[in-house]
């Protein structure tokens, strides 16, 4: 009837089946799949024997855990006041044109997702953004173009 979800089962074996294992399991699922899907949440709830709503609540609380399908690279631009005064709106505009998506969307090739984030703690070097775990600071439209191109080229090399 129910197919066992090997990914979740392995993670539960590794981190344990207590409620406090929820966060490391969610982090690992996201790392592997770039999304924490509805089905995976149900399976996590089953493994830990907690309510599915609780899993959902935890997954949606943390902005670095995504419950909707995201690109391989998630670009997060700091939206807070210092970066705004340093011109983050121009950076977003540049990225939107470069990637041909609006804020919150993913490119059709599944490579990039564009998002805003709360303060990255780089106020002295704004505007700042993260691409997955890598920070980029003192951004200008030109710098952003170079960064995105670098990522695109790396992808091409991997593919070929």
């Amino acid at each position: 009837m129910l197919q066992t979800n090997e990914t979740i089962k392995k993670l539960a074996d590794k981190f344990g089946r207590k409620e406090e294992s929820l966060l490391p399991i969610l982090e690992n699922v996201y790392e592997q799949k770039h999304i924490i899907s509805e089905d995976d949440m149900v399976d996590i709830a089953r493994e830990l024997d907690i309510s599915a709503a609780k899993v959902y609540g935890t997954a949606t609380f943390y902005s670095f855990l995504e419950t909707k399908k995201c690109g391989k690279y998630v670009i997060r631009i700091c939206k807070t006041i210092t970066c705004m005064m340093h011109g983050k709106n121009q950076i977003i505009k540049e990225l939107e044109e470069l990637l041909k998506v609006n804020l919150g969307e993913t490119t059709p090739d599944g490579l990039f997702t564009l998002k805003e984030t709360n303060c990255l703690g780089q106020c002295h070097k704004g505007p700042a953004m993260l691409i997955n775990d890598a920070p980029f600071t003192e951004l200008t439209p030109g710098k952003v173009r170079d960064i995105v191109n670098k990522y695109r080229q790396e992808e091409k090399q991997v593919a070929s």
Partner: peptide
């Protein structure tokens, strides 16, 4: 001990929600 309702999201977006914001009749 059901937890059909939970707190989802945070800050300004925080809301009381069911699993995946489904209608109440579809959840536990």
């Amino acid at each position: 001990s059901i937890s059909a309702l939970t707190v989802a999201h945070k800050g300004g977006e925080m809301k009381v929600s069911t699993f995946f914001e489904k209608p109440i009749y579809e959840v536990v």
